[in-house]
Each structure stands twice: as structure tokens, then as C-alpha cells.
Amino acid sequence: MTGKFLFDIRNAKYFRSQTVLIFLYIFILFTIISCKKENQVTEKPIIKLLPDSLCIYTDTILPMGSLMKFKIKAQSEVMPLTNFVITYNNGSEEYFLDTGIYSHNFEYTLEIIKGIATEETWKFFVMNKSRESSYVSLKIALDTGGVFGAIKTYNITLGAQNNTQAGSFFSFSDESVYTLEQAFNNQQLVDISYCYYTESESTLSSPNDNDAPSVFTGTYGISNWQYRNEARYNITSLTSLDFDNVLNDSLLIASYDVVGAKRKGKNIETGQVWAFRIQSGKIGLIEVGNIETGTGGNAALKIKIQE
């Protein structure tokens, strides 16, 4: 039988050369396989403010204390949106929100109270995975002819997480102090809480605080809650006298730091005045009274909040 076959070992030289070629092909193939380049897609995302009911979508003038509602819609067809930023500028730019997302379509609603700034610029920025970005912005000017709102006053005592006498949670809508079990059964009404942390000691907080699940535990523990309202706090330089002299919400609004407020009011001490905002958007002031420290302790609070 004559003729050449691929592995015809009767033809030794041909067999050797074919074997060498085959292994050479494999070598080149292996090298090529790994040389893949990523496709770079350039696509700018789209972002706009929606002119929905009661939403602000263009420059406007508002009095202090007005509720501002912005509804943002963004989309990116090919590459997902990955970053959403809200900045606020009333002379210097500050970050209100800077968060990671991963979606081709994104909607966000911001409700916030107009502060005392004469002019403030709100900028809504979005970036996609190609690091292409777009933004919309608008200016809100202060209507100096505005009327201030009424306030409500409360004197309460909140217990720390292990206090068996006083509840740790308070609802402004219900005007009630709740124990953990009661709060669990009224999750949507709970606005603020008080606890004692090792790191931050006496702390004003709320169910949506990161660390709340670790101190309010058990069957009714916060990790089992479906609704967790959030309050944010910032300390002020107001005195007890300033607090006592508050008759409307002007100082409440002026004292609240829209950008700098945090989910915890840490290391509170007697005599301090803290500004806060609850989930519904209402703003208030808390004067800290007597504190018994420890996880079984309590804090006496005087509160003035928008009606």
C-alpha cells in the first residue's frame, strides 16, 4: 500500500515532520486564544428630571421650609449605569449622595426641605460602565416672603436597648414611645430610637441605622423588620436658651445640615442641641437632658419638630 497518511509511521520522516507541525499549530493556537481584546463601547447615558405631579424639574423660587421633590430618570442602553451622584451647591459644592448602582434604567425620588440659602444648585449626575456620564442641574432661589411653619413640642425619655422600664423607640405620628416588641408591631410609624453603643456610647439613631440590628436583637429584632425608617442627625451650636426660644420652624430648617447629617447622633451629652430629619422629611431639634449611660440606661429629650 503506497501513499502518505497523516500518521503513517512507515514514512518516518513525514511522520516526524507532521507531528512537529501539529504541535506547532497547537502552540500558536494556545497563544492566540488568550489574546482577546475587550470591546469598548462608548455610549453616553441619558438623565432627565421628570415633570411629574408636585415635582420640580426647572429653576424655581421657593420659600424656606418648602418641600422640594425631584424625580430623576436615567437610562443607558448598552452599558449599565453604575454611579449616581447628587451634589448641592450653595457657595461650595457638597455631596448629598454618591452611590453605586447597576442597572440600565434608574429612577430616584428626592424629597427635601428648602433651607435658608439664597440660591442653591442641585445637580444630578449619572455615569455608566464606559465611564461616560451625563447630568442635569437646576437652581432653587429663596423666596424671602415665605411664611414659617408651626411646630410641635415633646418631652420624652427613651431607654437604651436593655432598659426594661422605658422603650427605645418614638413615633411622631403616633406620639408614642415603643418597646422593641411594640415597635416591631408598628414598624412604619417608628421615627427615632436611642441606644448605647460601645464605640459611640449614648447615641440617637433610627431603625435604618447600620448597627441597629446588632443591638436590637431577638424575635422582634430589627433584622426581622420589613420597614426601617431613617432619621439623620447633626449637632448644632445652639444653646438651651436658643432651643427654648424656638417658636416656628425657621431655626429648625436653618440648623439642619442637609448634606452633613448622619444616621447616628453619636456621643450625645446633656445640654447639646441636635438637628434631625425623619423619614417623612420633617425637621426638628432635640435638646439632650439627663443621661444615664450604659445599655440599661436612658436619655431625657426635649423635641421640637415641624407640625
Binding site: 453604575t82 454611579n83 454618591d98 452611590t99 453605586g100 460602565k129 456620564s133
Partner: peptide
Amino acid sequence: EIYYTSTDY
């Protein structure tokens, strides 16, 4: 370092 959930680069 290229961040996608913030603008940092």
C-alpha cells in the same frame, strides 16, 4: 484604579 460606582480614576 478605575472606579465605576464613583467617578474616581
